[in-house]
Amino acid sequence: MIASVKRILVIASHTFTQLVRMKVFGFLAVFALILIGINFFELPTGNSPASAAEEELRMLKSSAMGAMSLFAIIFAIAATGLLLPRDVEDRTLYTILCKPVPRLDYLAGKYLGVLWTVLLALLLMDILLVIALQLRTAEILGERMAIAEHLKWTPEEVGAEKDAVLSQGATWSVQAGIFAIFLKSMVIAGVALLISTFSTSTLFTIIMGFLVYFIGHFAGEARDFWLSQQLETSVLAKYGSHLISVVFPDFRLYNVIDGAIAGNVISGSIMWQLVGISGIYAAVYLILSWFAFAKKEF
């Protein structure tokens, strides 16, 4: 068991090195540019000055977290879809599986390596976002306090304004939202891993991965439809909704990310539920991948 964990960590750290040396972190430079760009250009909101200030912070979070989400999802699908077929193509897989390495350890190591890379990239982007948010929040707060002083607001009004601005800043809910992005990419990477165990091309894995990702956003609706359907429902709709709700992960669960952008408070219990569900999804996809990979011949 200990030997197995060690092997998984060896493969994971190697996968991480491999991805880092593929210069995937180049995306961070693009992300930094996005943040700098948003700070330089004032986006028209058409709202009152008070709500415009909050809107500006929301826009900053929305753009940054949107970019983070985009990076994490693309990376999770592409990297997972790329690594396994490449090992087969280059025959490096032969030299690994000819060592005393169980196939589950190999798969788990590759999966973990991709997740480490996504986590580290998100962490670095998170640090950049927090710095940008802190600076912008302080700036906006200063402007709003100057206005409050000029208009001679009551202490209660000043306090409410302060809370309103700070609630759009670098809160724990933003951190929860970013963690939810990681959990979402963990699930989609699991899907890509499963597809890559039976697919013969990287392109097919990536296309299928994105397809599952988009369908997964309707999995919740499909399940609701399944549960609430009437007898007169067509056969196609009936079995289609069954299939989607059983096979595809329900990405509607990760709408907490939008809540975090909007400045809503995300409770710990919601996050624990999300961690649990994501963990179950990841474990199921890893086990299914193992079943497919264990019988694979090279």
């Binding site: 090195t17 491999q18 040396r21 593929m22 280059d90 025959r91 490096t92 032969y94 030299t95 000819c98």
Partner: peptide, 13 residues
């Protein structure tokens, strides 16, 4: 067992 495949490729990085 140790194995060397035909025209072996290893991780280039």
């Amino acid at each position: 067992v140790g194995y060397v495949p035909e025209n072996p490729y290893f991780y280039k990085h």
